[in-house]
Write a protein that binds this DNA or RNA. Sequence first.
DNA 1: GATGAATGAGCTTTCATTCAT
DNA 2: GATGAATGAAAGCTCATTCAT
Lengths: 220, 220, 220, 220
Amino acid sequence: MEQWMEELLLADGDETKMTEKQAKILEAAIAVFAEKGFASSSTNEIAQRAGVAEGTIFRHYKTKKDLLLSIVAPTLAKFIAPFVLRDFNQIFDAEYNSYEELLRAIIVNRIEFLNKHKRVLKILVQEIPFHPDLQEQMKKFVLAKVLERFGVIIAKFKASGQLADLPVATIVRLTASGIVSYVLLYVYNQSLDKRQKSVQWDEDGEREATIRFIMKGLAP
Amino acid sequence: MEQWMEELLLADGDETKMTEKQAKILEAAIAVFAEKGFASSSTNEIAQRAGVAEGTIFRHYKTKKDLLLSIVAPTLAKFIAPFVLRDFNQIFDAEYNSYEELLRAIIVNRIEFLNKHKRVLKILVQEIPFHPDLQEQMKKFVLAKVLERFGVIIAKFKASGQLADLPVATIVRLTASGIVSYVLLYVYNQSLDKRQKSVQWDEDGEREATIRFIMKGLAP
Amino acid sequence: MEQWMEELLLADGDETKMTEKQAKILEAAIAVFAEKGFASSSTNEIAQRAGVAEGTIFRHYKTKKDLLLSIVAPTLAKFIAPFVLRDFNQIFDAEYNSYEELLRAIIVNRIEFLNKHKRVLKILVQEIPFHPDLQEQMKKFVLAKVLERFGVIIAKFKASGQLADLPVATIVRLTASGIVSYVLLYVYNQSLDKRQKSVQWDEDGEREATIRFIMKGLAP
Amino acid sequence: MEQWMEELLLADGDETKMTEKQAKILEAAIAVFAEKGFASSSTNEIAQRAGVAEGTIFRHYKTKKDLLLSIVAPTLAKFIAPFVLRDFNQIFDAEYNSYEELLRAIIVNRIEFLNKHKRVLKILVQEIPFHPDLQEQMKKFVLAKVLERFGVIIAKFKASGQLADLPVATIVRLTASGIVSYVLLYVYNQSLDKRQKSVQWDEDGEREATIRFIMKGLAP
DNA sequence: GATGAATGAGCTTTCATTCAT
DNA sequence: GATGAATGAAAGCTCATTCAT
């Protein structure tokens, strides 16, 4: 499994295998899928936006669904990468003195990730309910891996008396719900154009409020 | 506006205006839309499941999108009913001695609502990103009304020193994120069949943990 | 099975179930398939010749292959009808004083049949090698039924000393090969236009020669 | 014409003119055409089975039809070789004392030929109805040559009182129909696997029956 | 009101063929 | 010679919508 992961990550990082047109197709497909949803997107429109003949799409991706998966799978892989690949980045390997420090790190890291993969994540979220195979992978890899990895760290903080004595899954759920609500607010803010800045949230204030909320909520 | 609301609510509660066929069409459409998504559903399949001719659908709903809206609108209306219709139900009109009591009332109320409208809510959530008109209504009515109504109550609890001194929107956001994560867990639990009960969450425990989490998190 | 047969035969005889357009589609499909072969025929051309929108074809026949089968199946059924349906016609129920009489009756009957279903039979013969399901049905029903029915009659002629003492299957094979070669000659003759009548065979002469050939060849 | 024939025959026997790839393409094309029919075969599949790039096919054969012809033509040439090329083989050049001897020789020879070229002959038979140019060549060369050559021999046997006084074409037709029905039976037998040997015909018995049938049928 | 046959635009997909490398 | 990416025309098929009955 980890081999498959690493391959996916490399294959995608090392995009030399792709022809120029193929890259354009992917880019166009991401844009169109994110904009209209998978089912409402036509391969014709994708081809046009990619500046490619429609047939070219099907030379690289056997079906439209194949195209979807080839977009969504690598991102899914990258999503769990931090959790399955040792020393992939510093989130879990750095020593954190407090749960708060960890929270801050995660928020920064996830916002960065979200920003980078916004459109693909939108597609993923939209399509998961209709593709049982994606659901399966999500549950099997992502959820399982995240819980497993977090478990170790949270146990440490629980032992040192920084966190309430709740099941790991519960702590993860409550932490995640807080973070997710903040991150969504953050990207929502970004989606507003200049003129609408008046209705924006105060990002810094909300971040601090969120962190304090979680810390207090999970205090022993 | 409130008139329109009341009409919607009545029209739907009092389903005598609908022919039997029309009701069957709605029911079938909800089932199919929830299962496959709006764009991937065919009016043909809806007609078959409803046991009517395809043409009959278009006698009642000018277009396929019309059908979607006539499904989604009443549920949206009911969703905000407690917030816009005085004495529609007891949530806000009862006097709550503590924020915790309010939380418990909301959880019960929302779970009930979600259970009753699960499929339509799924459709709504799926389709909102692709229908700007729905988004507009959502923001204008739902969000605005909910915040407005909540504002009054939260102000009271803040004044009496039960809640931290945070913006109302922030308190709503953090409260909502906690409740949503619990409610989703609750319905997820229900979707598991008997054999999978072993992987279930402990509902009661999670509910209590969630309430305590929110209360502690929002304490002054 | 015989029930299924009778249904097929009736369904086809009683073509009132078909809309006018559907009949036109069948007629056009038979023409085009016979002319170009199944794989080289386009539903587009069939639609045009039928004076129908292309979509109409697929309202009546789910796939192009479905259309093929709905053409070929009834003819296949009619082909074996004389052998499975008692008193369907007079071939086997009349008393034949000699094998020669039987031969003459068959030739007349088969030429008539061939003339009536020339195009469909061409399609059938062309497509059988590529559709194992058709092959199966052919072997199971047609061959089996024909041999069985013939067996009884041939046994009678063998017993009365009119035919050589050969296996029934062998007699059928040799008889059939002779008849087939004559019948093909006959339809080939018809396919020639007036100007080419000079290269025609002498039908009557060939028929008599064929019958004498078979009779002498199978004499005891 | 005979020069063209000889060239064809040599070119194919002496396959040194073909590159290895070209040979593989031909072999693959024969396999695929025989399996699926010409129209249903894709150059893509042929290329894959041949282990070459799709473009390579078109380097050697201008069009897909060209490929078909380059498969079918040499076999057609070989088919008439015994009839047009003096001392090509022994069938007609040996002196036959009886028509029966000739029959036996032809059967052996044709079974051998059929076995060697089974797939190509299947392709040829399948495609002839849809390619008027092939039909033309068939009639002009094959039929004409065969009849002409046979005519001489049959005239001899008629003169010596071994055969009935029928037109040469008729004798050829009746003889051919008998032989063909036997040869088809023979190859059908071969196509059955071990387990099905019980349903086989008795080859030797059928061959003798067929020969006796023809001899008796054509006796004066 | 209800039907369902018919439509035609548009969908995904296939394919023989071309051509720069 | 050989490749395989690219093409675009055409294939089979789907679908929301219309309309005569």
